[in-house]
Amino acid sequence: MDKKANSYYPKTPVVIECNIEKTLNVLGGKWAFLVIRELFGGTRRFGELQRLIPAVSPRALTSTLRHLEEHGVLERRVYPTVPVTVEYSLTPKGQDLHNVCHEMKLWAARWT
């Protein structure tokens, strides 16, 4: 390739942010939608979530909850009881996903 042709390519890659990609980075985990679905029903404790989603391992559930908390989708509240009580609930950002989940449910009913 000659020098002139090579000058058209940037030296560093161009990053184009896609809103769908950003959304999938937050919600793309295997268990995220199931956790969010259960939290639409209200505040839940870890054990409740584990019973409601029996296929998820404790480690995967913990990882998913931390990830969603870091991205502002859910809130973790710790109460100083013995043993410690921890509850999870959706933030307004998490509640805003209700329509997205509903549309996905309709799509799946139609096409799968």
Rank of each mutant, 00 (worst) to 15 (best):
R77D: 11
E87V: 12
K11V: 11
Y9V: 10
R76H: 04
A60S: 04
V82E: 12
I20N: 13
K30F: 12
L27T: 08
T91G: 00
A55C: 08
V56C: 08
L39W: 01
V100C: 10
V86D: 04
Y8G: 06
H67C: 05
P80A: 04
K30C: 02
G47K: 11
R66P: 06
S89N: 05
I53G: 06
K93C: 08
E103Y: 08
K4M: 04
S89T: 01
E75D: 09
L39Q: 06
L61Y: 01
W111M: 13
K105A: 14
T85M: 15
E21P: 09
V35M: 09
E38P: 02
G72L: 04
V82F: 10
P54G: 03
K22P: 00
E48P: 11
L106S: 05
Y8D: 04
T85Q: 14
L68K: 02
K3P: 09
V84N: 03
W31Y: 12
P80M: 02
L27K: 05
N99W: 10
K22M: 09
K11Q: 14
A108S: 12
H98L: 15
V78C: 04
H67N: 06
W111F: 15
E21W: 10
P13H: 07
P58A: 03
L52S: 07
T112L: 14
T64N: 12
I53V: 07
R45K: 09
R59E: 12
W107H: 11
W31D: 01
C101Y: 14
L49F: 09
L90W: 02
K3V: 07
K30M: 07
T112Q: 13
I20H: 13
L39H: 02
S57P: 05
R44V: 07
P58M: 00
H67T: 01
T112R: 09
D2C: 12
G28E: 00
V35S: 08
N25W: 10
S7R: 00
Y88P: 05
L52V: 00
V86F: 01
T64A: 11
K30P: 01
T12V: 05
T23R: 15
Y79S: 07
A108I: 07
A5F: 08
N6P: 08
A108H: 11
E70V: 06
E21D: 14
G72S: 06
V15P: 01
